[in-house]
Amino acid sequence: MQQSIEELTAELREQLIEQLNLEDIIPESFDENTPLFGEGLGLDSIDSLELVVLLDRNYGIKLKDPKEGRAVFYSIRSMAEYIHNNRAQA
């Protein structure tokens, strides 16, 4: 049975914190819509590579177009929606 966007959002949050060692820097205001890069969580280009690998390893989704990444990795919510839509098509 396919996971809902809400379930994916909760799962991604856990994965991000673990994979990117974010335990000590997660702000209290961090939620599913907080921007992951820039003034939001402040992730950087190496993190974006980690996220590409995370999508591939955990969900079998290869992000082939780098331009897509900006929108996909905007927030946890946008990642969850992308996974939900692309896994549904597979």
Binding site: I46, L49, E50, D56
Partner: peptide, 9 residues
């Protein structure tokens, strides 16, 4: 395949 960059760096 699917190697994370951090360990390499």
């Amino acid at each position: 395949k699917q190697l994370t960059p951090t360990y390499f760096i």
